Simulated scan of single mutants.
Amino acid sequence: MRPTTLIATGLATAAASVAGTVTTRSSLETWYPRLRKPGFTPPTPVIPIVWTTLYADIAVTSAVAIDDLREQGRDDEAAAYAAALAANLVLNAGWSWLFFGAHRLGAAAVTAGALAVSSADLTRRTAQANAPAGAALAPYPLWCAFATALSTEFWRLNRGSRLVR
């Protein structure tokens, strides 16, 4: 893996993480505690641990996949992978903005579903480039599928509340 590719994917995932964190921080202290929560909501301290691990996983496995595609002369696929990664990270940060920033739980649930599909596609692309890297990325779409179920249940429980737009 080339250091420059890892730096690029690391910066991209860090940007998505920072965007999500900035949007989330104030709502965690004020708005989020007042929401009705599903019984399967993870404890709040678990979430940043999971996401930090996943962002590191995304950065490393994506760098491996992009470099492997380039080394195999599959430059078009490497470019398509980079575009898929960018779209995935936009969806990722967008969910945080919709849920915590705009308090639009329905739109956040739909975005979480799109993120789960995008994450599965990114994992598929990774596995096609490098099977072990694809296996290492497999927890990402699983977590996003869980997040979709969780987001949908938050929306269901809080529809009609003055806390939700």
Rank of each mutant, 00 (worst) to 15 (best):
L105C: 10
D57Y: 01
A87L: 13
A93V: 08
T111L: 09
A120S: 11
G101E: 09
D76W: 07
Y81T: 00
R70I: 05
Y81I: 02
L115V: 08
R104G: 05
A120C: 06
A86T: 15
G101T: 12
A102E: 12
A79F: 11
S119Y: 00
G101I: 13
D68W: 01
I58N: 03
F100I: 14
T61R: 09
D75L: 07
L89Q: 13
A87D: 08
F100N: 13
A63P: 03
D67M: 01
V64P: 01
G73I: 05
A114Y: 05
A56Q: 02
A84Y: 11
T111K: 06
D121P: 03
A93D: 10
A114T: 08
T111D: 15
R74V: 00
R70E: 13
V64F: 07
R70K: 14
A80P: 07
Q72F: 00
L85N: 02
D75Q: 10
H103L: 09
A78C: 04
D76L: 12
Q72K: 12
G106L: 07
E71L: 13
S119I: 05
A114S: 09
A93S: 11
A86G: 14
W95G: 11
L54D: 00
L69C: 05
A79W: 13
V60M: 02
V60E: 01
Y81E: 00
A65P: 02
G73N: 05
A59L: 03
I66G: 01
N92I: 07
G101H: 10
L98I: 09
R70Q: 11
S62A: 10
S118Q: 05
W95F: 12
I58A: 06
A65H: 04
L69W: 02
A108T: 13
A63C: 08
L85V: 09
A102V: 13
L115E: 06
A80I: 08
A83G: 04
A114W: 12
A116G: 04
F99Y: 14
W95S: 12
L69T: 04
T111G: 07
A108G: 14
A59I: 03
L85I: 07
L98S: 10
L54E: 01
V64I: 15
G113A: 10
A87I: 10
L85W: 06
N88G: 06
H103M: 05
G113V: 08
A114G: 08
A84T: 14
S118F: 06
V64G: 02
R104Q: 10
Y55L: 00
D121E: 11
A84L: 14
A112C: 15
I58C: 03
I66T: 05
A59E: 03
W95C: 11
F100T: 15
A114H: 07
A63F: 02
A102P: 07
A108Y: 13
D57G: 07
I66F: 00
V60K: 00
D75W: 05
G94I: 06
A86Q: 03
A112T: 14
V117N: 03
V90M: 04
A56D: 03
S62L: 02
T61W: 04
S62W: 00
D67K: 01
L69F: 03
D67G: 00
L85P: 04
A79Q: 15
W95K: 13
F99D: 09
G94V: 06
A107I: 08
D76G: 14
G113L: 09
A83K: 15
